[in-house]
Design a protein around this nucleic acid. Structure first.
Length: 540
DNA sequence: GTTGAGCGTT
């Protein structure tokens, strides 16, 4: 095993940190020894200059492919104090620029599970290792002054916020979780993913990654197979993604067009859309760490409010409530599946046609945060008549908004013969074989993207072929960032570590209670990302 | 004085 010599500051005595098998050093390893650090740098003996170490997705890469980390002594990079302050000033100034409008700003973060004894001072002290803490408060009972066991923190830098959201926190002897509070709403986040239309077949993911990397760190590239004349590129920085939208770019001599991966109107139109944003914007917050185990212990009253949708079976998705109360039932009783098979973190079709596929019902429930917020976020998803209620809202559009499906070459048959019946929940029977279209598939794809229909089609067509679906990939977004920031591929729950957590929900019929931590572990699993997307990345 | 899922008297 390789060790990397790291000191906090140049000249300090170094500590040897173990590198991974692939030669990288996990940021989490670094942060375990140097809390609050965000990177490494070293003194280049030839140039006498300080060089930064490449950092990507929670991993630090050795400067040399051949000689690895070499004999350098590296020292830590910490978030810049002045940068934070300048950001704060920017945010507080009246002259807010477009940048501040689109940039992901710091938000208050809720800290759950705090020990009763934790004070605002100790809370602040803990989090200061990550960066400047602008606010730390403990919610208390007004009469007794006793802590309610949760509080809020706000950081001065988004970097610090990201790191906090992607790490576990042992505060005053108790594991706590930090999340973006539900009360914040989730609609203001900016997607990291862009749609790249007019692609040609010879533009591969490496080409896309290489090309777009010059604008910012590319965390993912997804090219639908078979060829569809479009692709998706996910950036680490949503600003970069945003800045590219609407532009034409030439890759391998081909003019491609970059646009929003999902139309903005869609993102604010429905709860699903908002949650899509949430998932994309809060890439780092998608860990599902549940220090107290199962947060979804039975809430019969709540589940009662959400019954009715029974387009699929009783264990629809990973509805934790149903899972808890119905164990392994497959019957089509009327109690299950309010979660629409999940995917609630995205703007796409969480419902129709997909979760009727019996081979995949366990892939639903792609919870991206834990606990009861699920309930709050999904009122209105249960219109029982509509298999597409989770479709990002196109079914909810008025007729004037409806795309001309016929003009787009959309027929009324699903194109996947092996998935017959999957469109039973799709009231329009929308299905599309882009390959068979008489018109440029790129144009159709672009149009469909604008209507958020790409997901449906991809899903219908590729589900069998790739074992994944576009929509869950959409939901993933930077989610793997979260995983890797923590240096863990599996659950963040120390009670349930291991690779299974983030990889894939078990396709067996038992979605419930296997781990006593229903939504948190298998919760935001993403079968698609592990196959379509993550495999193209070099960090999993 | 106890407790352990949650979402903030701005």
């Amino acid at each position: 095993m390789d060790f990397v010599q790291v000191s906090e500051e140049e000249g300090d005595e170094p500590i040897e940190l173990p590198a991974e098998e692939d030669g990288t050093l996990l940021l989490s390893t670094l942060q375990a020894q140097f809390p609050g650090s965000c990177g490494l740098k070293y003194r280049n003996m030839d140039t006498k200059a300080v060089r930064g170490v490449r950092s990507n997705e929670g991993r630090l890469f050795p400067p040399s492919v051949d000689s690895g980390w070499g004999e350098y002594i590296y020292f830590c990079v910490f978030p810049k104090e002045n940068k934070r302050k300048s950001d704060d000033n920017l945010e507080n100034s009246t002259a807010k620029t477009k940048r501040i409008e689109t940039r992901l700003r710091c938000t208050d973060l809720i800290v759950l599970g705090l020990p009763w004894k934790t004070t605002e001072d100790s809370l602040r002290e803990y989090f200061e290792s990550y960066g400047e803490v602008l606010m730390a408060q403990i919610k208390k009972d007004v009469k007794s002054g006793q802590s309610k066991g949760f509080g809020f923190v706000r950081f001065g830098s988004y970097d610090a916020q990201m790191r906090v959201l992607s790490n576990r926190h042992l505060i005053d002897g108790r594991w706590c979780e930090v999340k973006v509070p539900n009360s914040k709403g989730v609609g203001h986040q900016v997607p990291c993913k862009v749609f790249v239309g007019r692609c040609t077949e010879d533009i591969n993911s490496d080409d896309l990654r290489e090309y777009f990397s010059k604008f910012g760190e590319v965390t993912d590239v997804f090219i639908p197979r078979p060829f569809r004349a479009f692709s998706f590129v996910t950036f680490f920085d949503p600003d970069v993604a945003q800045s590219l939208c609407g532009e034409d770019h030439i890759i391998k001599g081909v003019s491609v067009h970059v646009s929003n991966a999902a139309p903005k109107a869609e993102q604010s139109r429905s709860h699903q859309g908002q949650n899509y944003n949430y998932s994309s914007g809060n890439s780092y917050g998608m860990h599902s760490y549940h220090p107290q185990g199962n947060h979804m212990s039975s809430h019969p009253g709540r589940s009662g409010q959400h019954r009715g949708n029974n387009q699929h079976n009783a264990h629809g998705g990973e509805n934790p409530i149903i899972a808890n109360s119905h164990s392994h039932s497959h019957s089509n009783n009327a109690s299950g599946g309010y979660g629409m098979g999940g995917h609630y973190g995205m703007g796409g079709n969480a419902g129709g046609g997909y979760h009727n596929n019996s081979s995949n019902h366990a892939s639903g429930g792609h919870r991206q945060d834990g606990g009861a917020p699920f309930n709050r976020n999904f009122h209105g998803m249960n219109q029982p008549h509509n298999g597409n209620v989770g479709s990002g809202g196109w079914m909810n559009r008025g007729p004037l908004d409806m795309p001309n499906l016929q003009a787009l070459g959309i027929n009324s048959q699903g194109s996947s013969s092996s998935n017959q019946g999957q469109n039973m929940n799709n009231p329009l029977g929308v299905g599309l074989n882009l390959n068979s279209l008489p018109i440029n598939p790129a144009l159709v794809a672009a149009a469909l993207n604008q209507w958020s229909l790409v997901g449906n089609q991809l899903q219908n067509q590729n589900q069998d072929q790739q074992g994944g679906n576009f929509l869950s990939w959409m939901s993933q977004n930077g989610g793997h960032n979260a995983n890797n920031y923590g240096g863990r591929k599996g659950s963040n729950n120390p009670n349930n570590p291991g690779p299974g957590g983030m990889i894939k929900a078990d396709n067996s019929t038992c979605n419930d209670q296997q781990n006593g931590c229903a939504p948190g572990n298998a919760g935001w699993s993403n079968q698609s990302s592990s196959q379509n997307s993550v495999e193209k990345s070099n960090f999993l």
